[in-house]
């Protein structure tokens, strides 16, 4: 690990910067809360305290489980489906050229308007949330995988063949290492969007889950619960993104 010493100060600096941003966010949050009053916003400390209290209540966990299940399944479907479609479309040039613009167009339309369609097709249960989350996540994974597979250097494959690699070996030793960094970038975006899709599904016409708790808190003007749940979701989203970003950076550095 020769490069370790060179990396360490910058890592420390990054942590310091992250801390600064966090402090700035907390400070402006506190200021906003003091300015708006407890009717509008709770302070950071109150919110954290309420979040802890909320997670201690037994009524919280069924909703949490619902959201966690919906999101996990949606994420798995999005990643596996996106990988399969991306590989299939990337390996065959013409198929890729035909379908890529369709996926790019699907990426840019406001999918939220399609949620009623999903509800009509999948019913009012957890299936609709899963389908909607997967719909959001699968597109970036597909697009990134497609491009990664398409851009594998043909010379490497030819060199592999010249060295007598079997197809399985050339996939394992050439295609996978060459495509993994891009694919991980796609998965990171896909996981974030799948969370957005699942949350959207829970906020609209849902009877369970954290999104449902958010919506029912509006009805009774329960600002503390709204803030606490929004905080929990944000922390989860941020942590997942940070982990994926770290993997992403490491993989991209290797090349």
């Amino acid at each position: 690990m020769r490069s370790n010493e060179a990396i360490q100060p910058s890592v420390l600096l990054r942590w310091g910067d992250g801390l600064l941003v966090l402090l700035a966010i907390i400070a402006s949050w506190q200021a906003l809360a003091l300015w708006g009053g407890s009717d509008v916003m709770t302070t950071p400390i109150e919110t954290v305290r309420h979040a802890v209290q909320l997670t201690g209540q037994s009524r919280f966990w069924p909703h949490f489980r619902e959201t966690a299940t919906a999101y996990s399944v949606a994420a798995i479907v999005a990643v596996l489906g996106g990988l399969l479609m991306g590989i299939a479309l990337g390996a065959h040039r013409l198929t890729g050229e035909v379908f890529e613009p369709i996926f790019v167009a699907l990426y840019s339309i406001p999918k939220v308007t399609l949620y009623p369609v999903v509800l009509l097709l999948f019913g009012l249960g957890i299936e609709a949330k899963i389908a909607f989350g997967a719909m959001h996540g699968i597109i970036p994974v597909t697009i990134f995988t497609l491009n990664a597979v398409r851009q594998v250097n043909r010379t490497w494959l030819r060199a592999g063949r010249a060295m007598g690699l079997s197809p399985a070996q050339s996939i394992l030793h050439i295609v996978v290492p060459a495509t993994i960094p891009e694919i991980v970038s796609g998965i990171r975006i896909g996981l974030s969007l799948a969370l957005l899709g699942t949350m959207l599904g829970e906020l609209f016409a849902s009877k369970r889950g954290l999104g449902f708790l958010l919506m029912s808190a509006i009805d009774v003007h329960d600002v503390r619960t709204i803030m606490a749940i929004a905080l929990l979701i944000s922390i989860f989203a941020w942590a997942m993104n940070a982990a994926m970003l770290a993997i992403d950076r490491r993989l991209h550095q290797r090349i």
Binding site: L195, L200, I229, S234
Partner: peptide, 8 residues
């Protein structure tokens, strides 16, 4: 963009 803003 990783944080689902709609939660807010």
């Amino acid at each position: 963009y990783a944080i689902p803003h709609l939660a807010f």
